[in-house]
């Protein structure tokens, strides 16, 4: 263990870049938008704002590590928030509504996985189809309106003033942190996680080694759907309405977060911690722009530039090898 560079140390090295990026963004806005940016309150706000993208990024990390992509996350978030709201309006308790929202996401993911593996269509197209279908379904179910429903305790999950006060940040942030920790272990230390890396690194090798590629891929997309579904439930908690037009384009933020976090779109590499750093970077960027009075469209341009820059960095890294 002394002469070699252990795997965990190597992985930490790949996290240096994203961390520096995050610190850079924070430092930049601390200078540009001094009023309020560096306050505890603002950091709590950013943390809460990160939850939706962060949860999506956990699921997306699995998909991207396996060499796939899921473009349907934003639409699935909207669909599951609508499902959750409809269930509450029908008088179901919040627990049942939340579970239904998560289940909705899982079903979408399962369908994605099934289509990718059985029809052998590339994930880009399958999930692009789901992006349209899930959004349409959400609008249909909601009658193209926002759905008011008694949110119950679901509204407290994303509050910035949590009870009890020792929680400091909203329960949603803790949920995200706990799931990220769990997902990191699953991705690194379980057979499922190793299969995910193997498929993304070289699918032919995975087949050669008897990895159940189809089953694993379906599980991966279902897992991604689960996280999108959960994000949808929390999005409902935040808005306290089921909004079929919510999270439009969120998939780009999520993919950006994962790529900034060091995952390669060619598959075979990526870490949950990196993706979390990427998610926070995206949130700080949006938050800082808002405080500095930078218009929305500039933010969108910035996000576009950052995605391309992160991928360019990744391909530079690959070439150096």
């Amino acid at each position: 263990m002394t002469a070699e560079k252990p795997g965990s140390a190597r992985r930490l090295m790949t996290l240096v870049g994203p961390f520096l990026g995050l610190l850079g963004v924070i430092a930049f806005f601390a200078l540009v938008a001094p009023e309020g940016f560096l306050s505890v309150y603002n950091f709590k706000t950013v943390a809460t704002q990160t939850v939706i993208v962060g949860l999506g990024a956990i699921g997306m990390t699995f998909v991207i590590v396996s060499g796939g992509i899921d473009l349907s996350i934003g639409s699935v978030i909207a669909l599951s928030s609508v499902a959750c709201a409809l269930s509450l309006r029908a008088g179901q308790p919040p627990v049942a509504a939340a579970l239904l929202g998560v289940l909705t996401g899982m079903i979408c993911g399962f369908v994605n996985g099934l289509l990718v593996t059985t029809l052998r269509i590339i994930p880009f197209i399958v999930t692009l189809g789901m992006l349209g279908a899930a959004r349409g379904l959400a609008k249909w179910l909601a009658g193209e309106q926002k759905i008011d429903a008694p949110a119950g305790w679901l509204a407290d999950v994303m509050t910035k003033a949590p009870e009890p006060a020792w929680l400091t940040v909203s329960p949603g942030v803790w949920v995200m942190a706990a799931l990220a920790a769990l997902a990191a272990i699953v991705l690194r230390r379980t057979i499922f996680g190793i299969y995910t890396f193997a498929i993304g690194s070289s699918e032919a090798t995975a087949v050669l080694c008897g990895v159940p590629v189809r089953r694993t891929k379906i599980q991966i997309y279902t897992l991604c759907g689960l996280f999108a579904g959960l994000a949808g439930v929390l999005q409902f908690g935040r808005l306290t309405v089921g909004d079929p037009t919510t999270a439009m384009g969120k998939e780009l933020d999520v993919i950006a977060a994962v790529v900034i976090g060091g995952a390669s779109l060619n598959g075979g590499s990526g870490t949950i911690l990196g993706s979390m750093v990427g998610a926070f970077l995206m949130s700080f960027l949006a938050n800082g722009c808002n405080l500095a009075g930078v218009p929305n469209y500039v933010q969108e341009i910035l996000i576009g530039v950052i995605i391309v820059a992160a991928v360019a960095l990744d391909s530079l890294r690959q070439r150096k090898k």
Binding site: F197, A198, S201, S202, T205, A206, L208, G268, S269
Partner: peptide, 11 residues
């Protein structure tokens, strides 16, 4: 084909 099939080189 060691590089593409035999082994997952990145792992």
């Amino acid at each position: 084909d060691r590089k593409h099939e035999g082994l997952a080189l990145a792992l």
